[in-house]
Amino acid sequence: MQVALITDLGAITDECARVAESIGISLKVLPPDSGGWQNASLILLGEDVREAPATDHANRILVVLDGDEPSSAWKRAAHLGVEQLAVLPSAAEWLSGRMIAAVEPPVAPGVTVGVVAGCGGAGASVLACALARRAGPDVSTVLVDADPLGGGLDLVLGAEQVPGPRWADLSASRGQLRPSTLSQALPRHDGLAILSWGRDDILDLDPDVFDDFLAAAGQAFELVIVDLPRHAPPQWTRRCHHVLLVSPARVRSAVAASQVAKRLSQSHPDVRLVVRDTGAGGLDAELLAESIGLDLAGSIRDDRGLSAAVDRGEGIPGGARLGKLVDRLLGEWVE
Rank of each mutant, 00 (worst) to 15 (best):
L203I: 15
D14Y: 05
Q184R: 11
I292K: 06
D201L: 11
D145Y: 10
H268T: 13
G121F: 03
L195W: 04
S258T: 09
R76P: 00
L9D: 04
S90R: 15
Q235N: 11
G110C: 11
A135M: 06
L223T: 13
G114T: 03
L195H: 01
G121E: 03
G46A: 06
S183I: 02
S291T: 12
I225W: 04
G281L: 02
A193Y: 04
R263I: 03
S140T: 14
E160G: 01
R304N: 12
V3W: 09
A128R: 00
R18L: 14
S22P: 11
G293M: 06
A261L: 07
D169P: 00
L288Q: 15
D147H: 05
L287G: 15
V251H: 00
L283M: 13
V255S: 11
A122C: 05
T112P: 08
A4W: 09
E290P: 05
R60P: 07
S299G: 08
R60S: 09
F221W: 09
L143F: 01
R50K: 12
A254D: 03
G150S: 13
I12R: 00
V326H: 09
D284W: 06
R76E: 05
N59G: 05
V226A: 15
R178V: 12
L9C: 00
A122D: 02
A280I: 11
A309S: 15
A40W: 09
L62I: 04
F213D: 04
R272P: 07
W167T: 02
M99D: 07
P269S: 00
G175N: 03
V49G: 03
P70I: 10
D48A: 00
G151L: 08
H231N: 07
S253D: 10
S173L: 02
A78P: 02
V116D: 10
V260T: 11
R276F: 12
D295G: 15
V260F: 01
D48P: 05
H79C: 08
P248D: 03
G319C: 01
L45A: 08
D303V: 06
I300M: 15
D295Q: 14
S22V: 11
E21R: 15
D303G: 06
S253C: 11
P165G: 13
R133M: 14
R60A: 13
V49R: 04
L283F: 04
T141E: 02
D302Q: 14
V275M: 07
V64D: 05
P269L: 02
V144A: 12
A102V: 11
D14R: 14
V116S: 06
V274I: 13
P248W: 03
P70G: 09
G123D: 11
I23D: 07
T141P: 04
E160R: 10
A289P: 03
R304K: 13
V275K: 03
G81W: 05
Q176E: 13
D277G: 04
C240H: 06
L30P: 03
G123A: 13
L214Y: 01
A91I: 03
R18F: 12
D147W: 02
R50T: 09
V162R: 10
G35F: 04
S72V: 09
A102F: 13
S26M: 13
D302W: 13
A20T: 00
T112N: 11
A254W: 01
T13S: 08
A86E: 07
L177D: 03
